[in-house]
Each structure stands twice: as C-alpha cells, then as structure tokens.
Design a protein around this nucleic acid. Structure first.
Lengths: 201, 201, 201, 201
DNA sequence: GATGAATGAGCATTCATTCAT
DNA sequence: TATGAATGAATGCTCATTCAT
C-alpha cells in the first residue's frame, strides 16, 4: 500500500533524527545529515515536515505518547498499594529505556538546549513534565492515604524530586551508558527513591 | 593596571557567555550576541580566546574549580560522621547555586548538547563528573565503614545516583526555577537522598 | 466529451495563472499555487504545458489574439476618418479592459520583469508590441493623408507615444485601480491623446 | 578615510543591484550575482543591508530623492508660466534619464513585479507616485488659474495621465532603448502632452 | 590591545520538474 | 489523463573566524 510506504519514509526520517539529535544535539544536527541518514533527498524532509522544528515536535509527541501515556495506563491497571504501582511504573520506564533508548534520551538531552527559547518544543516538554508531575503527585497522595508514603512529606516536592531523579538517571545513561550495569543501576535507583519516600522493603 | 583591565574584559566575556549559553544553548548563542552582551567588539573575543569552544572550556574549568574543588576542600575540613560531611557538601552546593546559579546551570544544560560530540568540552565534563563521582564514592565508603551508610549498598552505584540526582535537581531549577521554593526543595532533596542511603534523621 | 474537459483543465490553469502572475509576478507565483488555484495536482500542469514558461507564453498568445487581433479586425471594419477609427480602437480596448482586466494587466506588468531576459516570452511581447506599433502607425499615416492628424508629426514616434500611453494607463489601473473612475479616466485619456495628435473635438 | 571606503562598498552593491534588477527583475537577480557583480563576498551584502529587500528600498529612496525631490526643487525655482515650468520639469527628467538611465528604469520596471505584494518597497513606490501626482496636480491647478491649461480639464485625472505617460515612456525606453532616438522622442512626447493639455506652441 | 569590515563555508528552506502508479 | 511523492539544484541568509588598521 501507498500508505505504508509513505509512513515508512516519515518514520525513517524520525528515526534518523532521534539518533542524530542525540549524537549532535538539535542545533548541531543538519538537515543534510538527517536526510542522508534517512536515505532521502533534502526536499523530501519538507514534504513530510514543515521544518526541523516539527521533527522535534513529533519526536516529543511520540515520546509523550509511547512512554508516559502508556506508562500511566499501565499503572492505572495495576492493583496493589503505592509500592506495587510505583514498581510497575518504574518497570515500564526501564523496559522502555532498554528498547527505545534513544527516544528517551533525546527527549532528556534536548531539554537543556531548548529551555528558555520559547519554542513550541519547549512548550511541549513543559507540558509533558507537568503531566508527569501531576500523575506522580496523585500516586504519592494515594500512597500517603494508604499509609505507605510518609505522611510528613510534601507530595508536590517529592514528585519534583522523583522526576528530577529520572531525568538525572537518563542523562547519566547518556554520558556513561557503556560503563554502567543498567539493570543493577535501575533497581538500585528505584530502591533509593523508595527509601527516600520512607519505604523500607 | 593593564593586567586588571585584561582580566576584566575576559571575565566580562565569560560572564556574558554563561548567561547566553544558558538562555540559548551553546550552538544557539552567536559570537555577536556574546560580544555585544560583554560590550566588546567581535574581534576582541579572539584576542582572549581561540574561539567559541574555548569559552565553554573555560566556563567548565571555572565551574570545576569554583564548585567542586572548593566543595571538596570544605568537606575535607569538616569534622563529624558521613551525615555531617554530606550536609556540608550539600550546603556548599546549595549556597553556590544561589550565588552563581547560571554557572551551575550552564554546566548541566550544555551537557546534553555536547554529549557524544567528542569535543574537548565533553572530555572536560566527563572528567569533572568522574572526579565528583570518585569523591562522593570515597565519602560513602567512609560512611559505610563508620556504619552510617547502609552496608549492603553498592557505593559505586550510589555515587552515580547522588550525582544524577544533583544534575536532575539543577535541570528542574532551570526549567521551573520561578515556581519552586528553592530552599525547601533543596532541603527536601537532601533528606530524600539521605533516606535513600538508609539514613533516618 | 473528453475534449471539452481537457480544454477546461487547461483553461483553468491559464485563468488561475493570469490571476496569480498579476498578484505575485511571474517569478513570485509558484507552480503549487498555480495548480492549487486551478484545482489540479502539481503533475497535471506538465501534461498540458512544458513548464511555467509556456503558461506565460500561452497567456501572451491569448492576449495577442483576443485583444490586438480582434481590435485590429474591428478597426478595419470601421468606416469614417481617423478619429472614428481611433475611437473604435480605444472603445474596444476599454471594453476589453473591463471584461478581461487581468489578462490585459498581466501582459503589461510581467513586461518589466522579463525584459532583458531573452526568454521566449520576451520575444513574444516584443512581437506583439511591434505589431501594435505598426498597426497604429499605419492608422496615423492614413490620418495624415486625410488631413485629420497633423502633418508635421512623425507617425513612427507618435505610434510609440500612443502605445507607451496605453501601457502607462494600464499600469496606473493596476496600482490605483480602486481609487480611479475608470470610465472617466479612459475617456479623458483618449481625448488627451487625440489632442496630442492635434485633433480638437 | 574609512568612511569613503565603506560608502564605496555600499555604493558598489547598490549600483550592481540596479543593473541586475533591471536585467533580470528583482526576484530573478540572485544575491550571488549581486555580490559577484559588486566584487564582494556573499556575507558582505548583509553587513550593509538587512537583505535583498532593503537594497530595493534604498534604490527607491535614492530614486525618489535624486529624481523627484530635485526635480520639484528645480521647478519651484523656475519663473514663468505653466509651460515654462513643465518644460523645466521635463528637461530635468530627460537629463536624469540620460545620466542615470538604469536607476530610472529599475524603479519603473520593478513596479509591476512587486505591485500587490504589500512589501515595503511597494509602499515606497506608491508614496513616490502619490507625491509626484500631487506635485503635478498643483502645477496644473496653477496653470489653469493663469489660463495656460484648459479650464474644463480635471487636473486630478490629467496628473494621472501625465504620470502614466512618463511611466509608459520609461518602459518603452527599456524595451526599445536602442532603436529609438531618445532626444527626439522625449521632445515629441513633451509636446504631445502639452497639446493634450490644450496648449499649442 | 581592540576594532569591525570582510569573508565564505555552511545552513534551512524552496520549488520547478520528474516519474512510477 | 491525472496524481502527488520524491528530487536536488539553487536561494537567501547566518555566523565563526580573520586581519588590516
């Protein structure tokens, strides 16, 4: 089908862009590199996207949908107390990180580059972060009610801390990815956060 | 003295660069903007620096020296157990963050942009992170020996986690700086990490 | 009939092109705009025309035929002296300008854009102008013989002047079309030219 | 002096642009051709101008000042009746056309190309034309009061006609410049207009 | 030391044209 | 006939860097 082929080209451009934005930054990756890597002509980029900006936008959209939306869905369908739900969330994110490492990393690393530019990508990232923050805060609130999460903690701040920890962890993976045992690291990180919330296993 | 004036110009360029790299990213800030903000002519930049790259190098050098070297010095001169020493470290970093917010942030945010480029700035950042990691690991090792830090934790991984948390925290400040009570947030973050290490206050 | 439909498509492309060349100039109007306005796909343009250039060629052809050829025919069939024939010519042009304003204007306005390019369109415009010049000169020569047009005037130059006046008038309509009473203006212009030829009404 | 050299470069770019806009149209002349013809690098254009548009703006500014402002000044300082003043105006324009042929022509030929674009150049052209129209109308009004210009003519329309005639004459020069005896043509044109105003020599 | 005019490689983007369907 | 995805040369423009003054 035509539809398949078309989507294929668009997908190839996005995939190439994810890899190149990660390796060279958003500003550092040129459209020529993008299209060369995708195996299409320069002009083809502009048939599928309005410009470089929109590629980043679609990457973030994809990230938001594939990671957070699905993660939240997963957690909603998980029974048990806060610990079980947080572990489910963490497991999903860790698995995602293994399969779609670059998609996760590019969303994190581009963040510093575009923060403060007022671009539509920045709006989108802020939106994603806000949604994630609110979701985690709601999770923590339930955790406090059921007595799993320490009562005296400010769930708003703790949600910020958890998100910041995740972002920091992703950046570490980006910088030291090869020299780290990702599975052990992720588990240690998860337990660190749980202890930080006053939860002893 | 001439010497003073020279240093003054160089310092002005660095200060302007810190602000602009933070606001627009490294690639996004142009040399014209840098020199305009510093109040010098375009050519002057090349009297003091070999190019844009070297400005970033010197910023990272400055960051490494002013934050980590001094922080480590401070901690070395602090008596008491791990908790006291970690709090001293954390206090220094927090105070630094208040006084030289941009210097701290630019070092963090530029990170994602240049990771994977193989530039000299990337080497420098990796070096700084490694030094910081080793220092914190050593701190944790001592903490384990004195019984403050949980024995079963892998201090190598925990050092990574602590560093990642700091980086994540700085990025949060960068993105949501205005809507966050920095002092309360920093204290909560510190205690979160301590609990993550198995330390109950 | 298929034949009808084909002509219809071609006609639609030409009509859309006339409007767009007028609004945006020849170089300023893109093939996408042309085909969008005509309601056909981009590729279709190349079934009916060899390229953008040929559209302009056909517009000029159409213009040459519909305006000048018919105007000359009309004048040839008009009895009476020079004044009657000139008025007939002028009336035809004015009526044409009312009905097919854009066709007339595009032929005039594109002129400046393509003059000196050596394109086939330029050849065609020169040819049209030359034909018009010769026709008007012949008209003036007869006028002189019958004693209507002043004897001492150089009919070659006067023909140039009349043509230049027509072109200038059309450009004025293009620039100030809305703020001008076209009928009064055209009549005043006609009488101005007649007086310029030494003819008092 | 530096000032001289700088002005020289800017002047060279403007002169080259006038020639190229005339030969290839505004859209048809590329920045590379402009800078090659001026003997400077591509980037230099952007040191002196904000872009191609601004070159056209400055050309029109120059045209407005050098032709109309000075022509109007000349006419104001001319004694005698309308005929004397109109001849002075015409003489100035004709002399200008001989010395700065291209500047005059480019202002006329670009007109059709940019009409309707809403560009700043279009605003400027309209402004120039309006100023010229008002000036000529005022001249005609005085001519009517002193009894030189026919009373029953609408000076507003006659001013339009005179301007349109001038524009048409310039375009003729552009198209048939080489095959026309400019001096004889200009004089014939002038007398044609005067007769059109009801003035017999 | 300091300037800023000048450079030109490189950038994102446009668009007339082609061609498989 | 008609389509529209794909092309790539060409465009206007940017910007790190150089260098004569």
């Amino acid at each position: 089908m035509l539809g398949n082929k078309q989507e294929n080209v668009k997908e190839r451009i996005i995939d190439a862009s994810i890899k190149l934005f990660l390796a060279k930054g958003f500003a550092g990756a040129t459209t020529k590199e993008l299209t060369d890597a995708a195996g299409v002509a320069k002009g083809t980029l502009y048939w599928y996207f309005s410009g470089k900006d929109q590629i980043l936008d679609e990457i973030l959209e994809k990230f938001s949908h594939e990671l957070y939306d699905q993660a939240f869905e997963k957690v909603k369908n998980t029974d048990g107390n806060f610990v079980a739900r947080f572990k489910a969330l963490y497991r999903f994110i860790t698995e995602f990180a293994r399969e779609k490492k670059e998609l996760l990393l590019v969303s994190t690393t581009v963040l510093g580059e575009i923060a403060g530019t007022g671009s539509s990508a920045e709006q989108k990232i802020r939106g994603i972060q806000m949604k994630a923050h609110d979701f985690i805060k709601a999770l923590l609130d339930v955790g406090q009610k059921e007595g799993t999460v320490r009562r005296e903690l400010d769930t708003n701040i703790q949600a910020h801390i958890i998100l910041a920890s995740l972002v920091g962890m992703h950046l570490e993976w980006c910088l030291h990815g090869d020299s780290i045992d990702a599975v052990a690291y992720a588990r240690a990180y998860r337990d660190h956060i749980l202890r930080g919330l006053g939860i002893q296993e």
